[in-house]
């Protein structure tokens, strides 16, 4: 019980710290949202009007507490740039980012898992070595370049793909896939390398344990040993790592949405940072970080349910 209580308290502390960091960073940020929005054509009257309208002339602590209060009631304030509630904007963009991220995660799972098992079974044979070098290469390529290459050589040549924009699932499933597959692949490729390695190591660790030796000595076929016994136990650390890569996949979407012009949260974040649209940036950053923290928390809890020894650590 104490374990869960402690985890929950830690969760809240982390979220509180995240909110302070987020808010603080944007207070020291040079650059004026109003001027950025109105450009060189603005006159001073318009600038001052807008500033007081948005409450940007109030003291800092007051702005912080208004913001925090809003967080609890689900009101993230209004975007300066778009004059609309931040939550509306978030909700509009969320499906895009979630879709890309889920597909990317699926790709990572579908590729890294079998590859990892394969490599573990053929430990240190040529195919294992080649696989790990090739996947490393995927990790080393700057993702926006990879995305551009995909657009150039696949997106523009294969009719199925649409190289930018987003078609909602509700409109056409095929359409949605045609806009989402390439970006998801771009995000997934560097992740495959890390997770593949992790799967491989986890399985190899299991192999060295006594129970495997026992089973093997009973003369069970190798396939059954691997799939039935080793894999099930290796699942625990694998589960954790898939929890952890959510943060990386979310980060991946930020760059990749730019490349593929997907109207998701990442794209919104980039424009709102350069617009100095503080309420919007804070809202997005809070949303992303809280999501990441919560997923990690969930994975932690699941992990401990699966393996009670964890709680003692």
């Amino acid at each position: 019980m104490f374990f869960y209580l402690r985890r929950i308290i830690l969760l809240f502390i982390t979220v509180a710290l995240v909110s302070v960091i987020t808010f603080a960073v944007f207070q020291v940020l040079p650059g004026d949202p109003i001027r950025t929005m109105l450009g060189t054509e603005a006159d001073e009257t318009q600038i001052e009007n807008l500033r007081s309208e948005l409450g940007l002339d109030r003291p800092l602590y007051e702005q912080y507490f208004t913001w925090i209060k809003g967080l609890f009631t689900g009101d993230l304030g209004n975007s300066i740039r778009f004059s609309m509630p931040v939550s509306t904007l978030l909700m509009e963009r969320l499906p895009v980012t979630l879709s890309v991220a889920s597909i990317a995660l699926l790709i990572v799972l579908l590729v890294a898992l079998p590859l990892g098992i394969f490599a573990a079974r053929r430990k240190n044979k040529a195919s294992d070595v080649v696989l790990s070098s090739v996947t490393q290469l995927g990790m080393a390529v700057p993702s926006f370049w990879l995305g551009m290459i995909f657009i150039l050589y696949i997106g523009m040549n294969v009719d199925f793909f649409r190289i930018n924009g987003y078609i909602p699932w509700t409109e056409s499933i095929q359409g949605a896939l045609s806009t989402l597959l390439l970006p998801a692949l771009t995000i997934a490729i560097p992740q495959v390398a890390v997770k593949f390695r992790y799967v491989r190591t986890s399985i190899l660790e299991q192999v060295q344990l006594d129970y495997v030796r026992t089973i093997r000595s009973k003369g069970l076929p190798e396939k059954i040993v691997v799939y039935k016994h080793i894999l099930k136990n290796a699942m625990i650390p694998i589960l954790t790592i898939f929890g952890l890569i959510t943060a990386e996949i979310v980060a991946g979407t930020i760059i990749v949405e730019q490349v593929f012009a997907l109207p998701g949260i990442g794209q919104l974040l980039i424009t709102s940072i350069s617009n100095r649209d503080f309420p919007l940036v804070q809202g997005i950053v809070m949303y992303i970080t809280v999501a990441v923290v919560c997923i990690n928390f969930l994975v932690d809890i699941l992990y401990s349910v699966v393996d009670p020894r964890i709680r003692l650590r």
């Binding site: 710290l17 944007f26 990386e248 930020i254 760059i255 970080t289």
Partner: peptide
């Protein structure tokens, strides 16, 4: 932990 909760590129941008 709090710093790690930010995906690296977001923190870098900020």
């Amino acid at each position: 932990d709090a710093l790690m909760a930010f995906p690296g590129i977001i923190l870098a941008l900020m």
